[in-house]
Simulated scan of single mutants.
Amino acid sequence: MKEARTDSSSSLRWNILRQALLRRSDSQSEAEIKRISRKATKGFNLIQCQLVDSDHPREACVCYTFGSTKLYLTQRVDNCSDLNDFEISNRYNIDNTGLVCQWPSEEVLAYFCKSQPDRFRGKRVIELGSGYGLAGLVIAAATEASEVVISDGNPQVVNYIKRNIESNSMAFGDTSVKAMELHWNQQELSELTNTFDVIVASDCTFFKEFHKHLASIIKILLKAKEPSEALFFSPKRGDSLDKFLKEIKDIGLHYVLTENYDPRVWKCHEMFVKGDDSWPNYDKNHCYPLLIQITKS
C-alpha cells in the first residue's frame, strides 16, 4: 500500500521555486502547487482588464479600464522566473514577489483609491513595494494628485514601472509621476523626510524581517506638521500583520484597522468565502486584505 504524502507547506513552496527554475512539472506536482498556492485567476475582479498583444515572449501587456481611462501595464508572464531574478533578490536583500504577478491586494488598493479621489487631490503620494505600479498609476490618472512616486526595492521591477509610466503619460494630466528605487532600510533619505501627504501600499507586511524597516520609513516619509496618512491593504497571513502592527505601535505611530471598508469588495469577499470557482482555494486569513490607516497622531 502506498503511503500518503505528508509534505509540509514549506516543502511545497520550494517545489514551486524548483518548477520556476527547471521549467518542468508532472501532474502530481501541479496538484500540490494548486493546493498550496493562494494565487487567484482574476483576484477580486474590481477593475475591468484584458490582455493586449505583446512583442516579447516573456512579457504580457494588460489594459485596465475604468470609465473613459485606459492604463496599459507591461509585466512578466506567469511562471517566467529565472535564476538571475533570485540572484538579484539576494544581492539587494529584497523579495521577488513584485515580478511574480499582479497581486489581489494591489487591485483592491487601486480600486479603493479610484473610489476616493478627494483623499488624494492636490496631495503628494508615494506607493511602497508597488510591483508593476497599478495603484500608483490609478492614483495619478484618476485623483488629480499633485505628485505620485511609484517605488520598489527591486531594480528589475523599477524598470517595469518606468516603462509603464512612459506608456501612460498622456493619462496623468498635470500630475507629476516618477519611479524610484527605494529600499526600506536606506540610511540617507533627507530629500524625502516629512515629504508625503499619503503613503499607499499593498501586501507589504508578509515578510517579518522587513517589518521594523517598513514601520521606520513610514514615520520618515509622512509629513509631520500637516495631516498625513498611510493606507495599507494587507491580509492577516498568520501572525505577520499583527507583528507589523506591533512595530507600528512601538515606533510611536497610530493605526486603525478596518475589515469592511467598501461594500463591493466586501460582497466579493463573502462570495469567495461561500465558494466560487474563480478562486477555489480562497482563505480569509491569506487572501482578504484588511485596511490599515496609519498616522503620526
Rank of each mutant, 00 (worst) to 15 (best):
V125E: 01
E106C: 09
P235V: 01
E209G: 10
V177A: 07
K42V: 14
P289F: 06
A31C: 14
K178M: 05
K267W: 07
E144G: 09
L257C: 11
F120M: 05
D152Q: 07
D78W: 09
N154Q: 09
P263E: 08
E147L: 13
C80W: 03
I218D: 03
E188I: 10
G173I: 00
D276I: 06
G43Y: 14
L231P: 12
F66H: 08
Q102D: 02
R124Y: 01
T74F: 01
G133F: 02
G122H: 04
S202K: 04
P263K: 06
I150Q: 04
V77F: 00
T65S: 10
R58G: 10
K114D: 15
P155M: 02
A142W: 07
K70P: 11
E107D: 11
S234N: 15
D55I: 10
L12M: 14
A171D: 06
P155N: 04
L241E: 02
A110D: 09
E107V: 04
T65H: 05
T193L: 08
E229N: 07
C287R: 03
L21Y: 00
L182E: 03
L128R: 03
L71V: 08
S81Y: 01
D78C: 10
A179Y: 00
W103Q: 04
K274G: 11
S130D: 04
K249F: 06
S105Y: 11
S167P: 14
L189T: 02
W279I: 02
Y255G: 12
N84E: 04
M180E: 04
R58W: 05
T195N: 10
A20F: 06
I33H: 00
F172M: 01
E127G: 07
A215C: 09
S68E: 11
M170P: 11
D174A: 13
F232Y: 04
S29L: 08
K208L: 09
R124T: 01
G131L: 06
K178Y: 02
S228T: 07
P57W: 01
W14I: 12
L182N: 03
E226A: 10
R163L: 13
R18Y: 14
P155G: 06
F206R: 01
E181N: 09
N96G: 11
K223W: 07
R38C: 15
K223R: 13
F206Q: 00
D26Q: 10
L128A: 08
E247K: 02
N93H: 13
G275M: 08
R91L: 10
I88E: 00
S176A: 13
I33Y: 00
Q186G: 08
N96A: 12
L182V: 08
S190N: 13
V158K: 01
R121S: 13
V265T: 02
N79P: 07
F272S: 03
S68T: 07
Q50D: 13
F272C: 06
F232P: 09
K42L: 14
A201V: 05
L134Y: 05
A141V: 03
N194W: 06
S190H: 12
A224G: 04
Q116Y: 14
V157Y: 00
V52P: 08
R18P: 07
D277Q: 13
Q116K: 15
A142G: 12
Y72R: 00
C61M: 06
N79I: 03
K274L: 15
K296P: 05
S190V: 07
A201S: 15
C101L: 11
D7A: 13
Q156E: 12
K178R: 07
N164G: 12
V77A: 08
S29W: 00
P117V: 04
L253R: 00
L109A: 13
